[in-house]
Design a protein around this nucleic acid. Structure first.
Lengths: 166, 166
DNA sequence: CTAACATGGTGGACGTGTCATCTATTCCCG
DNA sequence: CGGGAATAGATGACACGTCCACCATGTTAG
């Protein structure tokens, strides 16, 4: 913080956008999670994992790959997949080419539960989000989000400069 | 689900916007939390509570009010404030006019920690989010988010129709 | 007045996410 | 080839959030 002689607080417009976005996200995630839990035995993270797995023709994926695709830390993926294995939604398969690793594989039950949950989930995403916005707004949101994300990837070094570490 | 003869899956554009937004939010919240933790002893929820409290002239607020302002459930607020009290960031004050209730009050320590953390936090919000977008994009985001939020509030009944409870 | 109901808040159980640390393997460079 | 660095993953401790059941107080209608 030494280098910041003056703080540039957020303007009213900036703050409004920032707050609205945070509230929207909070509400959306909450409703989505609740809807899934009520209509199926799946949590939202479960759902995301199952979607990722069933997107593959062989319904399997290395653990670290899953973590990458979902943007999760490896540890999180490990914990979560462990729980899903316990509930019979996925199983682990030793990997021949790399004896450190595993494949995470969807089970028949996992597939069934995903197929049962997907229509309701998509309908909720539509009802709460997609159908509330014009196509133009959707594109604008997508552009903005991707701009922010792009900045993230480059600034993997900017994270460690004086502003952040103080 | 009985009434949905056909599922309207997301189009590529819709899915792209939805995904990008989710990833953006995940990354932002993660970085924000990490930055706060590294630069201060505060978690992100701590920060939000302290901001809410210090926004009041008397630095205090009823627990249920805090929950409303932050969009939290009462239980969450109760748990979190409890932890903050343990760490000396806030304290509880019996309420005369309603003997069931409490005021949550910022302590001097809470104020100090917030003031120390705020500049770095705001700088991070700027670096990762605000400064990546044009004013037009910010407004568009704000409008879109508020449109989605508005829909939430009305549809407190639509939540319980056939699509959700199945 | 009092019985029913609503509201403010607590507490525990559970699932989830993060961090730090650890082991086993594989990669790579001299 | 040998040895250090990177990688795959597991694990334990902890903070966080949700749900649900619960208590105490307040409010309201008959």
């Amino acid at each position: 913080m030494k280098f910041m002689t003056k703080v540039r607080w957020l303007t009213a417009r900036e703050e409004r956008a920032w707050r609205a976005l945070q509230f929207m996200q909070m509400r959306l995630e909450g409703e989505l999670a609740r809807q899934l839990a009520a209509a199926s035995g799946l949590s939202y993270p479960d759902y995301l994992v199952l979607v990722a797995l069933t997107d593959r023709p062989d319904g399997r994926m290395r653990l670290f790959e899953l973590a990458e695709v979902l943007g999760w830390e490896k540890s999180r993926a490990s914990h979560h997949v462990g729980r899903m294995v316990d509930r019979g939604l996925a199983k682990k398969q030793k990997c021949d080419s790399d004896r450190r690793g595993f494949y995470v594989v969807v089970t028949a039950r996992g597939r069934r539960e995903l197929e049962a949950a997907a229509p309701g989930h998509v309908a909720t995403v539509r009802r709460l989000f997609v159908d509330r916005l014009t196509p133009g707004q959707l594109d604008a949101l997508g552009d903005a989000a991707e701009a922010v994300l792009a900045a993230f990837d480059q600034s993997a070094d900017g994270q460690r400069d004086g502003r952040v570490r103080a």
